[in-house]
């Protein structure tokens, strides 16, 4: 990060020396802080409330509709956090989009890479689906699945498609909001039927969570891939020809 206020320094040699001293001083201070915090942390571990939420959280898992305790926390006990976390991702992407159109893509791939891409991408998508499904009873879930989809997008962009294989802008926008939208609507629907916001009836919990997770997976995948693209989708804009069209 460049800071204009510090741009001019009178004497570089002395300033550098002072800089180094400052860095060292800071290092010593922070090291002391680290040691102190470790001591305090040890105290907290020893005297702290040992089971914390673990036993309670594990005990209630059978009522959550899923078997993986982490998924239970993410999508049931603390579903509201997850909803807002999806909103954070959306906000970051909207921020990226607000900064301008996507930069140029990559040169087209050679045969070896293309060969790899042609079967890594489907594999990633399959793995994503697997992650999503497995999340109900074993480690995995929407975020990991979405990250795999996003990685698929990354590799597609690396292989030469500047839009990372994403659909047009309108579709992208809908896909992006899909996760939060389904999540919120399910929550509100439950509230409307008297259960309370994001309070799943045990019988429906499994399916509602799966629905939310599927939507979230798609949204996360699209958001991560679009974040890697790094700007507004350009294909729809006649002013910006797709950079990959330029022969190089």
């Amino acid at each position: 990060m460049t800071d204009p206020t510090f741009a001019t320094r009178p004497d570089p040699a002395r300033a550098a020396e002072r800089d180094r001293d400052l860095k060292l001083l800071l290092a010593v201070l922070l090291a002391l802080l680290g040691v102190t915090m470790t001591a305090i942390y040890a105290l907290a571990l020893n005297a702290g409330a040992a089971p914390r939420l673990a036993d309670l959280a594990l005990a209630r898992v059978p009522q959550t509709g899923v078997d993986n305790p982490v998924t239970a926390v993410l999508l049931n006990y603390r579903a509201y956090d997850t909803l807002m976390e999806l909103a954070v991702l959306l906000a970051a992407l909207l921020g990226i989009w607000s900064l301008g159109p996507a930069p140029a893509g990559f040169q087209r791939s050679g045969p070896v890479l293309a060969g790899m891409v042609s079967w890594v991408v489907p594999l990633l998508i399959v793995a994503g689906g697997y992650m999503l499904w497995v999340g109900g009873y074993a480690p995995g879930g929407a975020f990991q699945a979405g990250a795999l989809l996003g990685a698929a997008g990354v590799i597609v962009r690396l292989a030469g498609d500047p839009q990372a294989g994403l659909p047009g802008e309108a579709a992208q926008r809908w896909l992006l909001v899909l996760g939060v939208l389904v999540f919120t609507l399910v929550g509100l629907g439950l509230m409307l039927f008297g259960a309370g916001f994001l309070t799943y009836p045990p019988k429906l919990a499994k399916w509602l969570i799966l629905l939310i997770e599927s939507a979230a997976t798609l949204a996360i995948g699209v958001a991560l891939a679009a974040a890697y693209v790094g700007g507004r989708p350009t294909a729809t804009s006649p002013l910006d020809p797709r950079p990959s069209a330029q022969p190089k």
Binding site: L53, A54, A57, V73, V88, L89, F143
Partner: peptide, 19 residues
């Protein structure tokens, strides 16, 4: 078995961090 709550918190934290 480990406490799932911090795991979930960290997962959320990771998404936030990458965003």
């Amino acid at each position: 078995p480990p406490d799932p709550v911090p795991h979930a918190l960290v997962l959320t934290g990771i998404v936030v961090a990458v965003s």
